[in-house]
């Protein structure tokens, strides 16, 4: 009797645990089912690279080229801001900071991660947009503004994983380098960072996924213009912000096209996840 009960509990827990896989499968199925038909109809080439997006319920023109470019620019910009800054903070916290400061930084980074994205977007809109407008020109609502704020938003991802992998480098590496007469900086730059590179790589990829997927903050700062941006100071739109803005009222073919945009985003994020996974697996093996 007891043994049977135990076995049932084990089975039930297996089913519960598989809910994660089930959820992922249902999400994938429904997003693709809603978005794939229009991609097939238009052809992936035309959908991805055509920059004319003129939605109508029937017979509109649906090309997400401009949004894809906008997303790429904003994501790259976020990495340019976030990766050096995040890596510096990770090095600081793992190697340079006195104990008390290092125990202060970890919770602070967690708080940074806990701030809702609408707050980031709002502060960007109220503070950074006017600043860019008066000091650098253009409308202020721009690729640059969104990229800077996104760069800050991805800091927690980059810092926490990079710091963990820096701390995981065996002490012998550090001692060896120092014993050979290297300065502390030479040790960090020449030994520790290369030794931690798979973890750092994984953190960059995860940060990239976060920047690419962010929606609300970007909507508030990028200006949502369907033009292809010609400079960093131009307004633009991204794959995510276009979904976020137009889903509220889209119907018919237009809604289908938005789901198709979701398919592209989803596929891209999954590839990034797999890449991050491969990176961290290499770290475990090393």
């Amino acid at each position: 009797m007891e043994a049977l009960r135990e076995r049932l509990i084990g089975r039930a827990l297996l089913v519960v645990a598989c809910s994660v896989i089930l959820a992922l499968a249902i999400i994938t199925y429904f997003i693709f089912q809603a978005g794939l038909p229009i991609i097939v109809r238009l052809g992936l080439d035309d959908f991805l690279f055509n920059t004319r997006w003129q939605p109508a319920e029937e017979g509109g023109s649906f090309g997400i080229g401009a949004m894809v470019l906008g997303s790429l620019w904003v994501t790259l910009g976020a990495l340019v801001v976030g990766v050096p800054l995040g890596l510096a903070v990770a090095v600081f916290s793992a190697e340079l900071a006195p104990e008390w400061l290092s125990t202060l930084i970890r919770p602070a980074i967690q708080l940074l991660a806990g701030i809702p994205s609408v707050i980031y977007g709002f502060v960007g809109l109220m503070v950074l947009v006017p600043w860019v407008r008066t000091h650098l020109g253009g409308p202020g609502l721009s690729v640059l503004t969104a990229a800077i704020v996104l760069g800050i938003m991805i800091l927690p991802n980059i810092i926490s994983i990079s710091e963990d992998s820096l701390r995981a480098v065996p002490a012998a590496y550090r001692e060896g380098a120092l014993a050979l007469g290297a300065t502390r900086w030479q040790t960090i730059w020449g030994v520790l960072i290369p030794a931690a590179r798979s973890g750092i790589g994984a953190s960059v990829i995860l940060g990239m996924g976060r920047a690419l997927g962010e929606t609300m903050a970007v909507i508030m700062m990028i200006g949502n213009s369907l033009q292809v941006p010609r400079s960093l100071l131009d307004p633009a739109t991204t794959v995510t912000s276009n979904i976020g803005l137009e889903m509220a009222y889209a119907s018919g073919e237009h809604r289908e096209a938005l789901f198709a945009t979701g398919v592209v985003l989803f596929a891209f994020i999954m590839v990034l996840n797999l890449a991050a996974n491969a990176f961290s697996r290499r770290r475990l093996q090393a």
């Binding site: 997003i31 995860l206 996924g209 976060r210 997927g213 929606t215 995510t240 976020g244 789901f259 994020i269």
Partner: peptide, 10 residues
């Protein structure tokens, strides 16, 4: 890793 906008669509 799935972005929240995808959860919204789903």
């Amino acid at each position: 890793g799935v972005p929240s906008i995808i959860f919204g669509l789903f």
